[in-house]
């Protein structure tokens, strides 16, 4: 088991020990690039593979998925006992593979989400940008309204974000739709009067 090292980001050469946590920028022996390295205890940690311990004694809790393996932790979502093989550690919490999959599918487990679509921004752009070429708003305004209604309850960004874009998009798109209805009504009544 060899300990890991930090490599220079430019040339890939291993950083000499005296460079680690130095108080000033030092030149890489390989390429001369000035850099500073801050290392943490996790760098020196060795990760041995663990295939799960067998249930050595009768009466000990066993893994829900592997009856012959000894349970080491319970799932924080469903409470099932898990062996080292089935335990998925996310930060400080532990999950079983089934809860992990369910959380990913239903977007309930925020800590494993790696992508989100911002429908509020899309709706706002759809409601405002076509105003530059206003005839397009005949199609884009209903589309913006649809997005607002369809995705109102969908979670927004993982970071704090209000629904103000949805509200603005709805108001602007609604005004555009009203404008179009008024225009059609005006044209219809005008034509009737002319006839």
């Amino acid at each position: 088991m060899s300990l890991r090292q930090v490599a220079c980001t430019e040339c890939g050469a291993n950083v000499p020990p005296e460079f680690v946590n130095a108080d000033e920028f030092l030149g890489c022996p390989g390429c001369g690039q000035l850099f500073r390295v801050f290392t943490f205890p996790a760098l020196q940690r060795t990760m041995a593979g663990n295939a799960g311990l067998p249930a050595v004694e009768t009466g000990e809790a066993s893994c829900f998925y592997h009856a012959q393996k000894k349970a080491i932790v319970a799932c924080d979502s469903c409470g099932r006992f898990l062996c080292a093989l089935c335990d998925v550690e996310i930060g400080v919490s532990h999950r079983c593979p089934a809860c992990l999959e369910a959380g990913k599918r239903t977007q309930k487990l925020e800590t494993i989400e790696d992508r989100r679509t911002l429908y509020d921004g899309l709706a706002l752009v759809l409601a405002t940008v076509p105003l530059l070429l206003w005839p397009f708003t005949l199609f884009t305004a209903p589309a913006a309204l649809f997005l607002v209604v369809r995705y109102w309850r969908r979670p927004l960004s993982v970071l704090p974000r209000t629904r103000i874009r949805f509200v603005l998009a709805f108001l602007i798109a609604f005004a555009q739709v009203c404008g179009w209805l008024f225009l059609f009504y005006f044209l219809a009544t005008n034509r009737r009067n002319t006839a």
Binding site: V6, T9, F25, L34, F35, R36, V37, F40, A42
Partner: peptide, 14 residues
Amino acid sequence: RFYFTDIEAITICK
């Protein structure tokens, strides 16, 4: 996401 327990090193390169 980078959990604090997993971070091994941070490098600043001029």
